[in-house]
Write a protein that binds this DNA or RNA. Sequence first.
DNA 1: TTCCGAATCCAACAAAAGTAGCAGACGCCG
DNA 2: CGGCGTCTGCTACTTTTGTTGGATTCGGAA
Lengths: 248, 248
Amino acid sequence: MPDHPKPVHTPPTHQPIHPLEWANVPYFSGLPDCTLKRIAAAAHRHCYQAGAVIFNEDDDCAGLHMIADGLVRIYRVNAEGRLHTLSLLRSPSTFNEVAAVDGGPNPFNAVAVTNAEVLVIRHVTLLNLMAAEPDLLNNTVQTLARLNREYIERLEDMTFRTIPSRLAKLFLHETTYADQIAETPSQLTQEEIAAILGTTREVVGRALRSLMNAGLLRRKGRHVYIVDRVGLEYLAETNMMPEPLVER
Amino acid sequence: MPDHPKPVHTPPTHQPIHPLEWANVPYFSGLPDCTLKRIAAAAHRHCYQAGAVIFNEDDDCAGLHMIADGLVRIYRVNAEGRLHTLSLLRSPSTFNEVAAVDGGPNPFNAVAVTNAEVLVIRHVTLLNLMAAEPDLLNNTVQTLARLNREYIERLEDMTFRTIPSRLAKLFLHETTYADQIAETPSQLTQEEIAAILGTTREVVGRALRSLMNAGLLRRKGRHVYIVDRVGLEYLAETNMMPEPLVER
DNA sequence: TTCCGAATCCAACAAAAGTAGCAGACGCCG
DNA sequence: CGGCGTCTGCTACTTTTGTTGGATTCGGAA
């Protein structure tokens, strides 16, 4: 449960990402090996137990974070204590680029969902690295632009889409959320899905039921499979339940 | 009205911004004069009649836009044709930084609300400028980071705040929206407010009524004044209508 | 002035989302 | 094996938001 994820005893996989493998992360893609090594050398290593807080929103800039191992939840909380999960990130990924770049307070909270190993580069260190490595500076610009696009799309989801529609979209591109959910069985609880969609567990339950009634999903025991991908796409785009498959 | 703003006959003020005055725009703040001049020299000038489309979302990258004169609406549209106004920008301002930087499709639509004069720098030109002017590159990074923060906050508004609460927030920091709304009379129609808040005109009407009933706002003829700023802040933060003033 | 259209007001209704409570299924741990 | 806690399923109810349609006010154009 998102609120304060209880320690899940996930065995640490302990295959820490080799510096050169960071090239798979968008932020570092295309960087020459020497730059990657310099970045790795500038980073501090932190280990978190499952459920541990990595940093809180509005706290002083925590710097650039790179997940070497584990799963991390990025989220915001409102006055009434409701959560909104912005993303679930697996290694290798980066987060908190915005604060790392402008030195301002962290724009969201981060907790380790599983045991996690994280590399951290402080704000000033990153500025120095960027000054010394033009390629890194360039990647920073592109990364920030991509993040902007993601937030704009997210904004559109919240403004225009109904909850069944958002749920359909979540099933469709599960990749965004650490492919814990897919045509392969969902590993996310309804509560977690609710936090991702910005709603409550009960509403997610209803939406799941309605998607199953409409023949878009099917339950197999505890798991849910995609039956009608095209129908899900239709729902995600139009907010309208598609007609049953036989009629299309 | 946002849908297709009809030509409002605003007399062109025609005091085109002098290159050196661009320093007031966050994107260009702190840049040396020579850089500003080089930027100005690289820009193409476009004039739009009130209501004219500047560019559409998903169209090929339209480049960096700088408003020299006039008012511009940035918005998105969903499948059912509903609008969401992301911002109303006056000169001097910049927009479409994201596409200008990554060369991807425009992430939103832009139309001229009044007659407008806009300077445009194409994607490749901007890349060249950034390569040649380290200060500009640095400002680009900071601007993209700031935009990210704005979108994150916007996302929180849509996820967590009720419509009366969003309306209260709009009245409070009118600056974001071209201070057309303020303790000074609002110039925005309910329809325009609805597009900003991501809802419909009628709902805005109700919310306005309830804020007036609660003694937070007061109508003077066609205009609306802020009566209880503290109450508005309370509503904006907690989603709850404050008790009438006398009880506080 | 009169006419017309835009903006608003208002009431009734419909749909979506949030809330509350409880029972049952399942897996984990003692 | 039994107990406990989490996750889920389900029903009923409330609140918020969206939709519709008609009346009214206002300001500008003819």
